[in-house]
């Protein structure tokens, strides 16, 4: 991590904004997540929302209940105590992924005039600028490691995904030159160093690689596994892609509609220090836990 001291700033009279680091790293994300958990556990009166993000977080408070200076002092105190935690109990989830599908392909072709390379598809462009010899080789790298859900938001239930590999192996792709006005729901997107799954149809600027048949947000709460809560992902979840073809896509979609589909999900403990010592070994163990 490039920086040791967090930057505190107020977003108006109702938000305290804390930037752990200017740049993205798993360490900054871990610190953000553990401080947010500690703030939640402290049950500070007047705190109404705690939003962890990639390398920063935000606390919304009611200044009629707690003075801005007091909430800042309280959060600083919690941050000073909470920074040691490098182990989290979390979940690992498998997400079926149909890459180069007809729906995102049709959409990306409609918006070529907003793209860096109008003569290639999004995934061809991403493979080339990341120096992969082919789209298949790019996809092997894309699906070859797990991803951290480093933030949930933008719109309801949308996970931001951070690739769990050393920085030199991380995929990076610019966003569209101008955002699209349309993105199919459940599109697998990528922008900067972050992947995402678009939870709803709408505007978007991330490159489009594919689509999942597995709903991740259901405001009606009719989908069996979204009946407890309408959003599937939480910050700190670990995601593993499972590449599928058209047949696999259709079959899972039918299962979802019939209420038969249950996402593959197990509880795991993740240790950042162990991960940094041995990235591939730790990732292998996570996959073994998922498939055990």
């Amino acid at each position: 991590m490039a920086r040791t001291e967090s930057r505190y700033s107020f977003g108006g009279d109702e938000h305290l904004f804390v930037e752990i680091d200017e740049e993205m790293s798993l360490e900054a994300f871990f610190k953000s997540l553990s401080v947010c958990t500690a703030i939640e556990e402290a049950k500070i009166e007047g705190v109404t929302e705690i939003c962890p993000a990639n390398a920063s977080f935000q606390v919304k408070f009611d200044p009629d209940v707690i003075a801005p200076a007091d909430i800042e002092a309280e959060v600083r105190r919690i941050e000073a105590r909470a920074q040691a935690s490098h182990r989290i109990a979390t979940r690992i989830l498998e997400v079926p992924a149909y890459f180069r599908d007809p729906w995102t392909t049709e959409t990306l072709l409609r918006f070529r005039d907003r793209h860096q390379d109008p003569n290639a598809t999004d995934i061809e462009f991403a493979a080339r600028i990341n120096d992969y010899p082919s789209v298949d080789a790019f996809l092997a790298a894309f699906t070859g490691s797990p991803w951290f859900v480093s933030m949930v938001g933008f719109v309801a239930g949308l996970p931001f995904l951070y690739q769990m590999v050393e920085r030199r192996r991380q995929i990076q792709v610019p966003k569209y030159l101008r955002p699209r006005t349309d993105t199919p729901a459940l599109t697998i997107g990528f922008g900067g160093c972050f992947g995402c799954i678009y939870s709803v149809r709408g505007a978007g600027g991330y490159q489009m690689f594919g689509i999942t048949p597995m709903p991740i947000y259901d405001p009606q709460q009719k989908i069996s596994y979204l009946q407890d809560f309408m959003c599937l992902f939480r910050p700190g979840d670990i995601l593993v892609w499972k590449p599928i073809d058209r047949e696999g896509y259709d079959s899972i979609k039918a299962d979802v509609e019939a209420g038969r589909f249950v996402p593959k999900m197990v509880e795991v403990t993740f240790d950042l220090d162990a991960f940094e010592r041995d990235v591939d070994g730790t990732n292998r163990k996570l996959l073994e836990a998922l498939h055990a």
Binding site: G11, G12, H15, E19, M24, N54, K60, G153
Partner: peptide, 8 residues
Amino acid sequence: VDAAYPYG
């Protein structure tokens, strides 16, 4: 780096 947006 994508961060949380305060209301307003």
